[in-house]
């Protein structure tokens, strides 16, 4: 095992900040290339006219997932050293629901709003100010919500562990789901386009 490189001490914290900036550059570049700096294009996902949010996100998740699997399989990457969030199932579900509502009302999510701002979208600036206000409200209400937030704790758990099935098998199912999903949305988009050209 040689990766994650940072965890094996290949570079220090100062360098990690430069790495963060460079990774962010690539992240922002691809987000803009995909049209994710445009709130209107992002929102189109929820009116079935342009399903790029689904396509991009699912492709990205699947790509990274396959990469992790193979790099770990050949003994290069130690998955157990990768940090990701603990599951607090109730807070994850309710938080996701609230964020989803905010997404279609506001037009962005935190990452895409950064791209929206840098490409000149005034509504993205206002959205981010709202975001900071929301975080402030959360921070003030935190002591009251603490019990709820910490309920439903399941720890660091992934789907193969939850269902007690083979990691590779879950990977295979997700890939099948992705292919089925992409076929479905391509078909749906064509249907919507036809409907629009008729009206």
């Amino acid at each position: 095992m040689t990766a994650p490189l940072y965890k094996f001490g290949l570079f220090n914290d100062e360098v990690s900040l430069i790495v963060a900036f460079v990774i962010g550059l690539a992240f922002g570049f691809f987000l803009e290339r995909g049209g994710f700096g445009s709130g209107r294009l992002l929102a189109a996902q929820f009116y079935f006219t342009d399903m790029r949010v689904f396509k991009v996100m699912f492709t990205a998740i699947t790509t990274a997932m396959i990469g992790i699997f193979y790099l770990s399989w050949i003994g290069f990457l130690d998955i157990s050293l990768i940090y990701y969030g603990n599951t607090f199932i109730y807070a994850d579900i309710l938080g996701g629901l609230i964020l989803g509502i905010g997404f279609v009302i506001g037009g962005y999510c935190p990452g895409t709003s950064a791209v929206g701002i840098s490409t000149g979208r005034i509504d993205a600036i206002v959205y981010s100010l709202g975001g900071m206000f929301g975080i402030f409200v959360f921070g003030e209400a935190y002591p009251l919500m603490k019990d709820f937030l910490n309920s439903g704790f399941m720890g660091l758990i992934n789907i193969p562990q939850l269902l007690d099935i083979n990691y590779g098998f879950v990977l295979f199912i997700v890939i099948l789901m992705a292919i089925a999903g992409f076929t479905l949305v391509e078909w749906g988009e064509n249907l919507m386009a036809k409907k629009r050209s008729e009206s």
Partner: peptide
């Protein structure tokens, strides 16, 4: 929308 997003993301 931003306010809801900020709150939801932290939750």
């Amino acid at each position: 929308g931003g306010t809801l997003m900020g709150f939801g993301a932290k939750m």
